[in-house]
Design a protein around this nucleic acid. Structure first.
Lengths: 348, 348
DNA sequence: GGCGTCTGTGAAAGCGCTCTCACGGCGCAC
DNA sequence: GTGCGCCGTGAGAGCGCTTTCACAGACGCC
């Protein structure tokens, strides 16, 4: 217990040194675990630290070490829409766990406008953080380049736009989507539509690419009327489903690029009197909790989000230890979780 | 644009002063918006800052000002279970928006064990942050007291356990639950069960209290068999619903202390052949997205979570400006959102 | 017994910033 | 013309820490 708790102004290295009867340097060595300290000096210092309730001043330390022991996580989500699905919470958990096991702190930046994004960039490059994690970037956001260009280690979550020269971790969206659509083909579906994600986001692009791949592989001609864009939200999914239904009434399967959109589609299909999975099979993406809640339960592509967070931290820490190393890429596999919404039809 | 971008080591105040041909003090004044600076000196300095791409070193500044311009948000969630519902994302958004408009940064601490919680406490009291926001505290977590006792401004989200002497913001859980149950009574239900939240959390306690209040007010005798504890998760809700159904087969309404638990209950009721709302009405709490996804859509108690975040920040900023002021409490009203799951029965 | 080698310790120099204080120059009142 | 006050500016002291460097003493070697 500290003798001085609540005194407003903590003890300093100097005071500890005086109490312990040694120099500041020695106290500093003890605090930082430097082995070159005599046994009894060490004991004295430890006792003094205990007595005074000494805690090192992080700003002073940071000033000289040029390390802040914290990293920034940037989530630019203007609409805040991705907060509706459990992607961020899970990612946050993975990142948090990985960081805390390395004694790093997490500074969360959620710029809601381009003005705030500029501020976030300034923050990151001012030396507040030792490195940065960027996720959910839209279009070709210049953030990764500009931050990395300033010499700050950066790892991006999700494929960064264009040929950015930064490390990133991504889920294999193409393969995930392909597997989902192949599954639909295998269960006998032929008129397979998709509710694609926003095409200014790599995840949206890749999942659409996987959809096309699978159809091509199955020898099914691509039909533009079977593609409808959504924005990853339930409502967007519902609207997209309505468009699909109007354009191709004979549709017998829908692959939605997110569970939320799939849930919206299910509602619309239901309202239109289509049985799921008898008339139309539905597959989502994310395997979020929503997939278990829908009626019928939703077949979905599971992403290892926790692992994505952990990998991002691992890559960043590597860069921290070895600045200027070449950018690295990690792609994580997905897994199709089969539920009732895509069960095969027993046409006999 | 900076001339020196990517040089690894930013320019210092001193360099700017030299380039501008003034003293460090003058540069500091310009940077901090001090009005006592001559017009042309100011211009020179601004030009030099631009040329060098100067950004103040936060550690150095923090060392002398004793402010870090950042606040800590502690979410101790061992199981990570509350990450399943959208409570945290929304709270985060409210907090984030409120902080960024005040130019404060958010440091997120998610201690997953008591060891990590101790580390979080050390972090907060070491001076890394100017203040702390604590949410989702269990039992009687000593964190608020110990942090506040160290002189760090603290605001708790949700009613803190016992008579803690700290400011807090809470949703009116008692009133919300009472309104929900009164609604069930009004629509003709008489055997009203509840799936309560964890009783070591104030939110769980208060919602149960509101349930009891409402029954008492309606002159309906309390029946312990109609109370079943859940843990706020869907699965917990399902199990609790099974217990209720077994203990009181004639149950005609269930008030669940969270939407997730309500969703679990709906599944179980369905599986048991009960019609919703014909046989059993269901009301949830949170008005999360899940409430719209369930079939039928779920009547639920909406909490102003964004506002809760904003209020927490407001209270904290007040404390920052006026240390040692008396703890304050803000209670936010809830609102019942009626959907199909609790529609009145047309018994005629 | 002289010499080189290690080992624990302290003195002191910063890290980059803010802020007090002192000072020179100027306008104003008398 | 003298004195006063004000205003813009600079010198310099510190904030609390790490780290280099020098040094005293203990130790082993030939």
């Amino acid at each position: 217990m500290s003798v001085e708790s609540g005194n407003g102004r903590g003890a300093t290295l100097d005071q500890v040194a005086r109490v312990a009867g040694v120099s500041r340097a020695t106290v500093s060595r003890v605090v930082n675990g430097n082995p070159k300290v005599g046994a009894d000096a060490k004991r004295q210092v430890e006792r003094a630290i205990e007595r005074l309730g000494y805690v090192p001043n992080p700003a002073a330390r940071s000033l000289v070490t040029r390390r802040s022991q914290s990293i920034g996580l940037v989530i630019p989500e203007p609409a805040g829409r991705l907060f509706e699905d459990p992607f961020f919470p899970r990612l946050l958990r993975g990142i948090g766990a990985a960081l805390s096991s390395r004694d790093l702190q997490l500074v969360l930046l959620m710029p809601q406008s381009s003005g705030e994004e500029a501020r976030a960039e300034r923050y990151l490059t001012a030396g507040h953080v030792d490195g940065a994690l960027l996720v959910s970037l839209h279009g070709n956001d210049p953030l990764p380049q500009s931050v990395a260009g300033r010499g700050i280690p950066v790892v991006v979550g999700g494929r960064p736009p264009r040929g950015s020269q930064v490390s990133y971790v991504d889920v294999d969206n193409v393969q995930g989507a392909r597997t989902a659509v192949e599954h639909l083909v295998e269960t006998g579906r032929r008129t397979i539509g998709t509710i694609a994600g926003p095409q200014d986001m790599p995840a949206g692009q890749d999942r659409l690419a996987g959809y096309k791949d699978a159809l091509e592989g199955a020898g099914i001609a691509h039909d533009a009327k079977l593609v409808s864009d959504g924005d990853f939200t339930q409502q967007g999914g519902a609207e997209a489903a309505r468009r699909l239904l109007a354009a191709r009434p004979t549709i017998d399967a829908i692959f939605a690029a997110s569970d939320s959109m799939a849930a919206g589609a299910i509602q619309v299909l239901r309202a239109a009197g289509r049985g799921i999975p008898e008339d139309v099979a539905v597959v989502g993406f994310d395997d979020s909790q929503a997939a278990e809640t829908t009626d019928p339960p939703l077949t979905s592509v599971r992403q290892p989000i926790d692992e994505m967070g952990r990998e991002m931290v691992r890559l960043l820490v590597e860069q921290l230890a070895e600045p200027g190393s070449v950018p690295r890429t990690v792609i994580l596999a997905t897994q199709l979780v089969r539920r009732r919404s895509s069960e095969g039809v027993q046409r006999r």
